[in-house]
Amino acid sequence: MHIPDGFIAPQMYVPAYGLAGAMWALAARRLRESFDEDSIPKLAVLSAFCFAAMMLMIPLPGGSSAHASGLAVPAIVFGPWTAFVAVSLVLAMQALLFGNGGITTLPVNALALGLAGATVAWASYRALRNVNENAALFAAGWLSVNCPALILAIALGLQPAIASTADGKPLFFPFGLSVTLPAIMIPHALVGIGEGVLTILIYRAIEKRGWTAS
């Protein structure tokens, strides 16, 4: 789900760096105020889980491929700001060390997955947990994949309108919204089901260890 380098125009990634920078500073401040030594090992484990989940590609019908993100659980347990920092760290490592995702596209990926995905997962869990906690966890997992997918589909689909040559040839990414929205959202609607189930399983496992009480 990460957008690689060369697909996003500077007209989009430069402002995105500004916005993400402000959000990272705000998140770091909140993290410093609320974090203690007991939280570190738990966040380390959940971040490593996110990293591993994002690296393992699942082949999809039609020849494409997708991966889980695992970010709903840290968002539910630690809140969206902490999850945003953790996922941003994971994305930065993937881009800098392994060439997955991109450096220019890092803020777009981080804002979509880390901030929007984690916030939606956390909010949906909070809204639904008193109705049915398993449904709340499933919804958090499903939305944590599909909300970022929607944002990234829009970001990619806007590229032909943002950056094209005088004769209309797209400079960065050639497909518009009518192509990117179905191409990205349909597979991720399926991947979200797996992510929802995974969120329930991981949350229940860490709940038994008493991690969710902190």
Binding site: F35, D36, E37, D38, S39, I40, P41, L43, A44, S47, A48, F51, A52, M55, L56, M57, L89, V90, M93, Q94, L97, F98, N100
Partner: peptide
Amino acid sequence: GNRLKALVGASLLFGIFGLLNLFVKKR
């Protein structure tokens, strides 16, 4: 390989959080 990348990345993350542990406040 992606499995090796996942292992290396997870190890690095544990290292980073281990370092971070030195600087956070004690409960």
